[in-house]
Computed example of a mutant assay.
Amino acid sequence: MSESVKTAVIYYSSTGNIHRLAEAAVEGAEKAGSEVRLRRIRENAPQAAIASNEAWAAHAAATADIPVAELDDLDWADVVIFGAPTRYGNIPSQLQQFIDTTNPLWLQGKLADKVYTAFTSTQTAHGGQESTLLSLYTTLYHWGGIVVAPGYTDPIQFQTGNPYGTSHIAVSEPSEVTLDGLRYQARRAVEIAGALKAGRAA
């Protein structure tokens, strides 16, 4: 059922945590049988700011070959998985700038009826994860999207403790439990999109 589902994993990462989570989302979607595009959000921070942070500069260089997200990726996908860190309880400006370019697709109704899900991370627990996702989901509701949260629908969610897909990371690398949670979240989104496509075709 899910082999015809196309998934775009669109993320912004400065130092690499979100990038690793995005890779886990790709793994989960592919395991569910989906064709997947991994796309990074274009960086808009000043080069001086990037260069002043060794981890940020290193990650930017290491991922320069990953294609930048374009509107075509949203148009192409049946499932869109967004990932971004928290910035003061909200999404970073880089992702917001991309979202602000989507009006042409929205006007044509091309963002509606797709399955969307999202994840985030913070340096510490309770660092604004839920408010970040809720602010992003508000946009997806305006698009007419079908927001699919992982909820407590799989045993892995009782281990992560993050029913909305929030991935709060207090260490430099995400844990394997967190990565498994992202793999499950992506798989669930693909499976639901597959069921929706099958129902529409019936």
Rank of each mutant, 00 (worst) to 15 (best):
G89I: 08
D72E: 15
F82K: 00
L105A: 00
Q108W: 05
D73Q: 01
R87G: 03
K110V: 10
Q97M: 12
A55N: 13
I81E: 12
A64W: 09
A84S: 14
V80S: 11
I81T: 03
D72V: 15
A77T: 00
W76F: 05
A77I: 08
Y88V: 04
F98W: 14
Q96S: 13
G109M: 06
L74H: 02
A60M: 10
A58V: 06
N103W: 08
N103Q: 13
R87V: 02
A112L: 05
D75S: 13
A69K: 11
Q97N: 15
A61Y: 03
R87N: 10
Q94H: 15
D72I: 11
N90P: 00
E70A: 11
A69I: 06
H59N: 13
I99G: 04
D100W: 01
E70C: 01
A55E: 10
A62R: 13
L105D: 07
T102L: 06
N90D: 13
A64M: 11
A62K: 15
G109A: 07
W106I: 00
Q108K: 15
W56E: 08
F82Q: 00
I91T: 04
D73E: 04
T101E: 15
R87Y: 08
W106P: 10
A62Q: 12
P85Y: 01
G109T: 08
A112K: 14
P85H: 03
W106Y: 14
Q96L: 11
A69Q: 10
A60I: 07
A57E: 10
G109F: 05
I66P: 10
I66Q: 02
L111Q: 00
A84N: 14
F98R: 09
P104N: 03
L107S: 14
L95S: 03
Q108D: 15
W76N: 05
A84H: 13
D100T: 08
F98S: 06
I81G: 09
L95E: 02
V80E: 06
A69R: 06
A57P: 05
T102G: 03
L105M: 07
W56P: 04
T63G: 07
F82I: 09
T102I: 04
W76P: 07
Y88G: 02
L95G: 01
G109K: 11
Y88W: 14
I99N: 12
I91W: 02
L74P: 00
A60P: 08
A112H: 01
I66V: 15
N90T: 12
P67R: 02
Q96N: 10
Q97L: 14
H59A: 05
E54P: 10
A57R: 06
A77P: 02
E70K: 06
I66N: 04
Q96R: 13
E70S: 13
